[in-house]
């Protein structure tokens, strides 16, 4: 985080923009799934918040959607390259994964490696009938054949740039910034 100060930051989405995008994401999911029972899984930490927001919007529209959380640290393929060991959060999947139609949530889709790890992690819990992916921002630069089924906002970036997401639930403010 120290490098934030040295970088120029540009607002990509304001708090209001985020609210609009999340609502659209929710209704796209509703449109595609109809009456089908869905199960949400958020990737720690901001994917969990995104999943919770979408679930809350759909509360009146659909039967209750169980929500699980996933920490994918142990499934990362780059642990050897990290100088430090990330703290691990508890993963909690409070429903039967076998046969479930799961929507996986993360805030930013970038190389696709996090999602690859998350899918590997989920499959260790059972055999879902389907896994879909919902993200708030797709910033391109994929290194794996992975795409989002639901996407709030797409933007072209370079690998050197950095997207910073701030959510009120865990940060003091809300907004999405591009750091160059």
């Amino acid at each position: 985080m120290t490098k934030d100060k040295e970088l120029k930051s540009q607002v990509l989405l304001s708090e209001r923009d985020i609210a609009t995008k999340v609502r659209r994401l929710a209704f796209e999911i509703l449109e595609h799934s109809g009456d089908e029972q869905l199960f949400f899984v958020g990737i720690h930490k901001r994917g969990v918040i995104l999943a919770e927001r979408v679930r809350d919007i759909l509360k009146k529209e659909k039967q209750e959607i169980p929500l699980g959380t996933l920490d994918i640290t142990l499934y990362r393929d780059d642990l050897d390259n990290l100088g430090t060991n990330p703290a691990i959060e508890s993963s909690d999947i409070p429903f039967e994964v076998d046969g479930a139609h799961i929507v996986l949530f993360d805030d930013v889709l970038f190389t696709g490696r996090t999602i690859r790890a998350a899918i590997g992690n989920l499959i260790d819990y059972g055999r879902p009938s389907k896994i879909e992916l919902a993200v708030l921002i797709d910033r391109g630069n994929r290194e794996l054949p992975i795409h989002a089924d639901y996407c709030g906002h797409e933007i072209k970036t370079t690998k050197q740039e950095y997207i910073r997401v701030r959510f009120r639930e865990m940060d003091d403010e809300e907004g999405i910034y591009l750091l160059k």
Partner: peptide, 14 residues
């Protein structure tokens, strides 16, 4: 979190 793993059907991480 490692202890939580023991409740899963696959008790293993890569």
């Amino acid at each position: 979190p490692f202890k939580d793993l023991f409740e899963k059907s696959v008790k293993k991480v890569p």
